[in-house]
């Protein structure tokens, strides 16, 4: 399928969270969100929004999984928050058993997803983050699998309203 791509500018953490929240509302079990962007570009912040959109309690604190590698949250669907930041090799990823999360009942959001793009399932939706200045971020959502395109269309309609 032809790639679909849509870009949003956010001017604060709150706006990044809100965009994540809208995306979260459109997600269902099996969806995989691949986050790509440098340190401090808003990946964990965006995930806080995703969690809200997935119905995770607002009282739940979404913390960085850089050290723990995987954090799990219960919502409308289970959210698996993966982070491969401190992994050295693909074999580390596989031996830590992280691949299994793509096939569990839940939504996966993975930080530093460009490390080993080949491990990601083809139905992934990629979210790229670019730092424009201290608070401004350019966030690009893209995908070419029909499921990813479906999510993006859904999101565009909602954000247009």
């Amino acid at each position: 399928m032809k790639e679909r791509c849509v870009t949003y500018d956010t001017a604060s953490d709150q706006e990044t969270i809100r965009l994540g929240q809208e995306l979260g509302k459109a997600l269902t079990e099996g969806d995989v969100i691949a986050l790509v962007g440098e340190l401090g570009s808003g990946k964990t912040c965006f995930t806080k929004g995703l969690a809200l959109g997935l119905g995770v309690s607002p009282d739940t604190i979404i913390t960085s999984p850089s050290f723990s590698l995987i954090n799990e949250y219960e919502g409308r669907h289970t959210l698996f928050h993966l982070d491969v930041y401190r992994l050295e090799s693909l074999s580390d990823f596989l031996s830590a058993g992280l691949e299994e999360y793509f096939y569990q009942d839940g939504v996966v959001v993975m930080e530093w997803a460009d490390r080993w793009p080949e491990i990601l399932p083809e139905w992934k939706l990629e979210v790229g983050f670019v730092i424009i200045d201290h608070s401004l971020r350019k966030i690009t959502l893209s995908g070419n699998h029909y499921r990813a395109v479906e999510i993006l269309k859904d999101l565009e309609v909602k954000l247009w309203r």
């Binding site: 340190l39 964990t44 912040c45 979404i62 913390t63 960085s64 850089s66 050290f67 930041y85 401190r86």
Partner: peptide, 23 residues
Amino acid sequence: GQTLDDAAGEAFDKVAKILGLGY
């Protein structure tokens, strides 16, 4: 109280990486 995002040790690790130091 607790951290709402990164742990303090994680901040050390990430800044070390930014500065080109080890892990």
